[in-house]
Design a protein around this nucleic acid. Structure first.
Lengths: 192, 192
DNA sequence: TAAAATCTGGATCAATCGTTCCTTAATTAT
DNA sequence: ATAATTAAGGAACGATTGATCCAGATTTTA
């Protein structure tokens, strides 16, 4: 009984995600966004909503696709410790090859501090990684692959929160080797 | 032969710093800034310059006062390892008590990626802390207070880059204990 | 094929943005 | 005291912001 939406919403949100990733939330204008998405203002407001709702969809897309990648990456690995190593090394690769750093981290520091809805999405992403990792670490402790500490919760926090600083270091120094050395040291520590 | 500047520039920049700290660079308008600074547009543009120049002065003030604090804090401590511990614990205190997180980190992720002048200031701040810490770590290695690694450069990077993730964790979870546990673990590791 | 529904492009909105300008106030050298 | 100079206050600038609206295009149902 009516006309259909012409554009692919998933694709359009993904284009918007790229703009937010590069320019930040406040740095991206609705004109930047609709131009990259290849749609008009009315299509944006009819189908997706306002700038904030678009941002929510963009960071959900970002975090959800990261969760899928992480799950797929670690699925086939038998040894929990090897899986943790793989996760750390995949993070190093992302940190040292992504030209615009990490959208989730940028969003945490620019938006999440003063925006509860955004903070919930960031927290959900963080909790997912936390659960993924604590599962591996608990098993590794059981199997005595990890002996450095029995406190799986602390160890999970400790490992997860390395990556943000490595991102910062790479932004400032653009030196892959520095990141790789820190990662090697971390792995050596938890493997000892 | 002329009228003098009435306002205290240092104080005004410090008020602007608070606004940038809370709202970010793009989130702070010149009206927000001049209102907080208690001056008019013309005073801002005559004496300090445009928004970007004000931001430069604000983050310089932030980083320079942090450098002074750190130097004063660690000056009286004899043992290099104890000084490192003090630095870590002071960072934990700041992370868990500062309502608006860290202006330098927020600036790194919001602005420094795409703004060279800002990036240089952030890098200078980072280099200062790096030099402060590598000095302590090198001495601690010499004195065999630190035995976990002889690579002072890597160890300095490794320690410095913990704090950013701890900030992120505190924004997301607002849980002081989690930060304290990670800090205790880090200190235990480098002291072992 | 006509009518109902809704999507699209783009003009347009008021509000706000960073910045400039103009008038007036203050200060100092002569 | 007067002239010269610069600061301050705030109105105002054009540009851009996020958002709305409307005319026309497209689709579906009857």
């Amino acid at each position: 009984m009516a006309r259909n939406v012409e554009f692919d919403e998933q694709l359009a949100v993904s284009k918007a995600m790229d703009v937010f990733w590069k320019k930040g939330y406040n740095g991206a204008s609705t004109r930047d966004l609709t131009e990259a998405m290849g749609i008009s203002n009315s299509s944006l407001y009819n189908t997706i909503g306002d700038k904030h709702q678009l941002f929510i969809k963009a960071i959900k897309l970002y975090t959800e696709s990261r969760m899928n990648s992480a799950t797929k990456l670690l699925q086939p690995i038998k040894s929990p410790l090897k899986a943790i190593e793989k996760f750390v090394n995949a993070s190093v690769y992302a940190i040292t090859n992504e030209p615009n750093s990490c959208l989730a981290i940028k969003t945490t520091f620019e938006v999440a501090i003063s925006d509860e809805a955004v903070q919930r999405i960031i927290k959900a992403d963080n909790d997912f990684t936390y659960n993924l990792l604590i599962n591996l670490i608990s098993k590794a402790i059981e199997l005595k692959e990890i002996r450095i500490s029995n406190d799986a919760e602390m160890l999970t926090d400790y490992i997860i929160n390395q990556f943000t600083g490595w991102h910062e270091s790479f932004i400032i120094h653009k030196d892959k080797l520095r990141i790789k050395k820190m990662a090697e040291f971390l792995i050596r520590q938890i493997s000892q």
